[in-house]
Computed example of a mutant assay.
Amino acid sequence: MSTWSNINLQDSASPIMEQLIYFHDHAMMIIMMILIIVTYMMMLISFNKNINRFMLEGQFIETTWTITPAIILVFIAIPSLRLLYLMDEINSPTLTLKTIGHQWYWSYEYSDFSTMEMDSYMIPQNEITYNMFRLLDVDNRAVLPMNTFIRMIVTSEDVLHSWTIPSLAVKADATPGRLNQISFLFNRPGVFYGQCSEICGANHSFMPIVIESVNPKYFME
């Protein structure tokens, strides 16, 4: 989970999120280098007339600041394209879970087990105990096995919702009359929280998502 005064991303719970964090750090380093160099050049232009003339009229510097951004974009694009392919759909998932957005709760259906369906409501504030998170805990958590390729099918019964778990790097719109599909894999056990990321009505803030990752043996039992 995220904590107060923390400007970093949440700890990863999937290989894709781990790679996204690496890419974020890689891109931030490039952005900081650009910011420092551009700031330094602007100061030189402002306070040195000779350099100012060189910067504004030199053919060499014009060629340099045309080619350099293109090279920088290559260093950003290559890992970005690699991540796009890694985030592609899984061909043969081990388990399928269907989630349906309602105003304002989620329901889950384990498609591989015909009788397993449940609704997941936020726990009201007057029922919260000391070990629960306000506005985040639910009465029925969706339990999934770790180290297992999982396909999530997302849809909605009424309006647009968005099923989001930041630590998994998954976010899919729940659209009425349409099925969206996402894939993920837990690489560690734990309880992971998310919230609807689409403004879906008056109680939009009160339909959290809680996924519990457990050992596959325990999940089957």
Rank of each mutant, 00 (worst) to 15 (best):
E18I: 03
P145C: 03
M122A: 11
S14I: 01
P189F: 00
S120R: 01
Q19K: 10
I45L: 00
Y130H: 10
M41D: 15
F184D: 01
C200S: 14
T66K: 06
E221I: 04
M87H: 06
I30P: 08
I36A: 08
A202G: 07
Y193W: 03
W163P: 03
N91K: 06
G177R: 06
P208E: 01
M152W: 02
G194L: 05
Y22G: 05
R53V: 12
I31H: 10
D119M: 07
S205H: 11
M116F: 13
M33K: 10
I67T: 14
F23T: 00
N187V: 02
N180R: 08
L81I: 14
I211S: 00
I16G: 03
I199G: 14
L179T: 07
M207H: 13
A202N: 11
P208F: 00
W163L: 02
S167Y: 05
F60Q: 15
I34V: 12
S167K: 11
R82P: 02
H102L: 04
S2Q: 08
N6K: 09
I72M: 13
T3Q: 14
I209W: 09
T64P: 05
T155C: 07
N6M: 03
I209F: 07
M118Q: 10
H24E: 04
M55L: 11
S205F: 09
A70F: 09
M32I: 10
M17D: 03
E198N: 15
L35D: 12
M118D: 01
I182P: 02
G58V: 04
F186C: 08
R188Q: 14
P208C: 01
V191T: 14
V143D: 07
W4N: 09
F149Q: 15
N140K: 12
G177I: 02
S162I: 01
S80W: 09
S156Y: 11
E117M: 05
S46D: 15
S2I: 09
A13I: 00
L179I: 01
I45S: 03
S213V: 02
I67Y: 10
I21S: 12
A142K: 10
I37C: 07
N91V: 15
L73G: 15
I128E: 02
T68V: 12
I72S: 10
V210N: 00
T148K: 03
A70G: 15
D11N: 13
V210S: 00
I128D: 01
L168G: 00
T99Y: 04
Q125K: 07
S14V: 00
